[in-house]
Structure formats: C-alpha cells, structure tokens
C-alpha cells in the first residue's frame, strides 16, 4: 500500500508529503523554541537589577562552535545539490563532513559543559560581601570537584575550602564582572587564593542549572538544541550509510529525504544563530 505523493509533488499544492510534514514539524519547533526564548526574556526582565550574569560563557569557543555549525549548513546544502547534479560521490563527502561537523559541535559543547560544572560561585551570609566566582579546592577531593554544593559540604562536615578567584575582566555589555570563562586561559592577574569558612557560606553552586535562572535557561536551551543536533546527526548518519542504498532504487525519493533532513538541519542552525548572541554576548 503506497501513499501517493511520497516522491512526486501533488499538482495543486506543489509539495511532496515529507516536505509539508517537515515544515509543519518545524512550525511546532518554532513555537517550542519560541516559548523558551519568551521565557528567557521574561526571566531576564523579571530579574532584580544587576543580578543577570554577564560574561560567564567562553566567547571564543562559542564563536568557533557557531562557525562549525554554519559550515555544516553549507555542507548539508551542498550534499543535496550534489544529488541534484547526480554526483553521488560528492554527496557522500559533503554528508560525511556534515556529520563530522555535528560531532565536533557536540564535543566542543561537552568541553564547555564540563568547564561549567567545575566552576563555582560562593555567596556569603554577610549580605554586604560580594559573591566570589572561581575554582575551589575541597579537602578530600582531587582537583576541581564537580557539582559541589553547600549542602554537600555541610553533610561532609568540611570546615574550610579554598577558592581561586577569577581575574576581573571587562565584558561585552560594558559592565564589570568577575570573569568567568576567559579567566582560565591565563590572561589577567589572578587574585590570591582565599580560604573560606563553610559556616560563612550562604550558598555555593557550580555553574549548573540550579546556579541561577540564567544558567537554568542556558542549560535548558543549549541541551535541547544539542538533542536536536544529535537527532539530526543520527538521521544524517543513517542516510549517509545504510539509507543511501535508496539512491540506486529510487534516486528522486532519496534526494527528497536529503532535502527534508537538510531542512531540519538548517533549522537547528537557525536556532543556534539566535542562541549564540542571546546567551553568550548580551
């Protein structure tokens, strides 16, 4: 039983089924990410004056990742164009490059995530004192601990920890902040290591979702985006590998599949085009 218009477009709509299907799906995706962007704005305008963090993400890495994703967008469209020209070998190369770009993006993203999980902010019971950001040393842990919290410190009856504060950097919006990401590439003067009594700590959190609404929305948006990248990469890997047999039996339908998966991929790219400035730069 074959459903009509899987390959040839229907004459009155000019569309084949999958193309309409993917656009409908993308419309719902616009609403999904749109709702999250709206949440971002509302959380930001809802934040108390001066509490919205700036400059905690690594801009060079983010820029590089943007370039990676943009490159994958051109390769994916070239893969489709190669099929249109009947050059299956070129398709294989471009599609392969796209998948590599997707993998590179994911690897870079995980490195960024790891950095955040081991980077801390400490707030004090004394409201006058500003919070400190940096890497911490906790007795009984080697190197930078992951996911440490004040609760865990209290449970382990640890009395003091050491913090290596980040150097001060001036960031994008012109506001001064304790540098985050750019701190550990050695620029700037490192302030001296401080010892902090756990009893003085009101709250200690790594740069994890629970840190603040900023990191909450950052992780939600980027993780959801990363899931899309992985999903897209899986589909494209299938179409690059076993799925590409269809080129021999039904080249037109296979070209359509590449077009449809490409549309999805461009959408993922498009989301990132907004995510990058909104989360990293503003």
């Amino acid at each position: 039983m074959d459903v009509p218009y899987t390959t040839k477009p229907r004459s009155d709509t000019g569309l084949y089924n999958a193309k309409l299907g993917i656009w409908l799906f993308l419309a719902s995706e616009v609403m999904l990410f749109g709702a999250l962007f709206s949440s971002y704005i509302l959380l930001r305008v809802n934040a108390l004056e001066g509490t919205w963090p700036h400059g905690l993400l690594n801009i060079p890495i983010g820029t590089f990742n943007t370039a990676v994703l943009i490159s994958s967008s051109i390769t994916v469209v070239m893969a489709w164009a190669s099929l249109k020209l009947g050059k299956f070998n070129h398709f294989k190369i471009y599609q392969g490059l796209t998948i590599l770009c997707a993998l590179a993006f994911m690897v870079i993203k995980s490195v960024e995530y790891k950095d955040k999980f081991t980077h801390y902010e400490v707030w004090f019971n004394d409201h006058e004192k500003k919070s400190i950001r940096g890497h911490i040393e906790v007795p009984g842990e080697e190197g930078n601990p992951w996911f440490m919290t004040h609760k865990k410190l209290a449970e382990r009856k640890i009395e003091t920890i050491k913090i290596h504060p980040d150097p001060k950097v001036t960031v994008a919006s012109g506001k001064e902040a304790h540098g985050g990401a750019e701190a550990h590439d050695g620029h700037g003067d490192h302030p001296p290591v401080q010892e902090i009594k756990v009893a003085d700590i009101k709250r200690l959190s790594a740069f994890v979702p629970a840190h603040s609404t900023y990191f909450a929305i950052y992780f939600t948006l980027t993780a959801l985006h990363a899931l899309h990248v992985m999903g897209g990469a899986l589909v494209m890997a299938y179409l690059w590998g076993p799925g590409s047999k269809m080129w021999k039996t039904d080249p037109e339908r296979f070209t359509n599949r590449i077009e449809v998966s490409g549309l999805f991929w461009h959408f993922v790219d498009l989301v990132w085009i907004f995510l990058f400035p909104v989360l990293y730069l503003l």
Partner: peptide
C-alpha cells in the same frame, strides 16, 4: 501543532 509546544517547553 502550535499551542502544545509552549506547554512542552
């Protein structure tokens, strides 16, 4: 299609 995604978010 268009109202459910915000709830999903």
């Amino acid at each position: 299609l268009l109202a459910f995604p915000p709830l999903e978010a």
